[in-house]
């Protein structure tokens, strides 16, 4: 490297240094520190004490930890496929040439603009056992004892899944954009060959938008594992029988309420590894269903 090039390199580095410094101080350092603290008994206020793998070992025997993990996985298993199917159905409907299409798109997108805390407060009333909108409708349909969404441990997660599905406007918009990118020539060719609407959807549309569905699925897995705000607002102390104690909520409680920051850091690292593993698994299992370059 010549002297001039070296000088340019230093100038360039100096110019990007604000970002580099920020990245090092606000991202790299906290990540490294959290890894270190995960091996410590650390309460934020006093100095960390090295305890080796104790936090990780404690996780194995912590019943609430396992409950929070299972709640999060069950919720993800309910809300993710249902949310994707619902979003896809909506996107397909909104892709039809219907009157006031723009208005409908805006209406379905609106819930995703509602802050999670406000959504949680509103859904507390919508899911109210006695006077809630949903149970009023179910009673009107003749169901004598509709679900106790907020009080029955078996119904809290389906209730939260409803909230998640209600806010699927973002996914709808992304899928809608993908649907509009499906090559018209392919659809026309399929129609000429006598393919029904169902077969066109199954054999042309879905393969064509499969990378977008895959993207939403992966983002959904990561998002579902980190579900926090709505649950935090809707349920105190994890709800009935801790059925709504989610991983991220329990992590927050350990960090800021119980002041077990070391334990919370260990939980965060396990969540990171879990997310990594699930994403890898999702990409492995869905590889055969994702088609790129349909043009």
């Amino acid at each position: 490297m010549s002297t001039g090039e070296q000088k340019h390199l230093w100038t360039a580095l100096a110019f990007v240094s604000p970002w580099l410094v920020g990245f090092a101080v606000f991202t790299i350092y906290p990540i490294a520190a959290s890894l270190y603290y995960s091996f410590c008994d650390y309460d934020v206020l006093s100095r960390p004490l090295w305890v080796g793998l104790l936090n990780y070992r404690d996780m194995v025997t912590d019943d609430v930890y396992w409950k929070s993990l299972s709640n999060t996985l069950v919720f993800s298993a309910i809300s993710l496929p249902l949310g994707l199917c619902f979003a896809l159905a909506l996107a397909l409907l909104l892709n039809r040439p219907v009157a006031s299409r723009g208005l409908f798109r805006a209406i379905f997108y609106l819930p995703s603009l509602v802050p999670a805390v406000a959504a949680g407060a509103v859904w507390l009333w919508i899911l109210n056992t006695r006077n809630g909108l949903i149970n009023e409708a179910l009673t009107w349909l003749g169901i004598h004892r509709p679900p106790q969404w907020l009080d029955d441990p078996n119904w809290t997660k389906p209730g939260l899944a409803l909230v998640a599905i209600w806010g699927c406007g973002n996914t709808v918009v992304i899928l809608l954009a993908a649907l509009q990118g499906v090559p018209r020539a392919l659809l026309e060719a399929a129609t000429i060959d006598g393919a029904s609407a169902w077969r066109r959807l199954w054999h042309v549309v879905l393969p064509a938008i499969s990378p977008v569905i895959y993207f939403n699925f992966i983002v959904g897995v990561i998002g579902a594992l980190q579900t926090f705000a709505t649950v935090f607002v809707m349920f105190t102390n994890g709800g009935p029988d801790r059925s709504a104690e989610f991983y991220a909520v329990y992590l927050y409680e350990n960090a800021f309420e119980f002041r077990q920051m070391g334990y919370a850091c260990a939980m965060a690292w396990v969540l990171f590894l879990l997310t990594l593993a699930l994403t890898w698994l999702a990409s492995r299992t869905t590889r055969g269903f994702v088609h790129y370059s349909v043009d």
């Binding site: 340019h8 110019f15 604000p18």
Partner: peptide
């Protein structure tokens, strides 16, 4: 120009730290 660039970059960094 190089000196000015360096001075500008240093100023930005200082601003960030400040």
């Amino acid at each position: 120009v190089g000196a000015l660039n360096l001075a500008g970059a240093a100023f930005l960094s200082l601003l960030l730290l400040a």
